[in-house]
């Protein structure tokens, strides 16, 4: 009996070894963003807000004096930018919450749900009426891009990527010309 109790105790200890908090479970990951990557970014504070939702991160986009960062709460941004020209929302397959798209002149903001907030998943520049704070816009050449940003962190077919503080600024190029610019969160990449 003593041996059985010992085996059960040892099994129990092994079973709970390395046990993280319950948020790591799949069921708790009720949206695609709540994975270990977010946890690695830091624990929630007492208010329940993730650091990502509170701070600016990496390269920022700016429109009419409003700074927009990926992985930040989108509500104050939308409040300051005003009503979007167009709004679309889509439920993630099999997950709770909505992915939202706010379209403004020259750019659009896409969000992902995180607890009771919508965080910015990406900012996509859609025409040359807007540019990055570093002065690069759609239609610029790769040479002009490199003058502004230096060498890319990485290059993929048709895309130059600049990484900073866990986010990516992506320039999609068609030949020598920039055809699209995206500020991307890394949180939603493969977990």
């Amino acid at each position: 009996m003593k041996r059985l109790m010992m085996m059960l105790t040892i099994t129990g200890l092994l079973f709970t070894a390395g046990c993280g908090n319950s948020e790591k479970t799949i069921q708790a990951a009720s949206n695609p963003a709540s994975g270990e990557e977010q946890e690695e970014a830091g624990d929630s504070d007492e208010s329940g807000e993730t650091p990502a939702a509170q701070t600016e991160k990496g390269y920022l986009f700016e429109s009419e004096g409003v700074k927009i960062s990926v992985d930040a709460d989108v509500k104050p941004v939308i409040d300051r930018l005003g009503e979007a020209d167009s709004y679309f929302e889509a439920a993630s397959c099999a997950f709770e919450g909505l992915d939202k798209t706010y379209t403004y002149a020259g750019f659009r903001i896409e969000t992902y749900p995180e607890k009771d907030k919508d965080l910015t998943a990406c900012i996509i520049l859609t025409d040359d009426s807007v540019s990055t704070p570093e002065g690069v816009c759609i239609g610029n050449s790769v040479e002009e891009l490199k003058e502004a940003y230096g060498e890319a962190s990485s290059e993929e077919p048709g895309m130059l990527v600049y990484e900073k503080e866990g986010m990516k600024l992506c320039f999609i190029v068609d030949g020598d010309e920039i055809s699209s610019i995206e500020y991307r969160s890394s949180v939603l990449e493969a977990e």
Partner: peptide, 12 residues
């Protein structure tokens, strides 16, 4: 269905 966004430009 309304305001369905166009697809974003892909690198490839």
């Amino acid at each position: 269905a309304q305001n369905v966004p166009e697809g974003k430009i892909l690198p490839d």
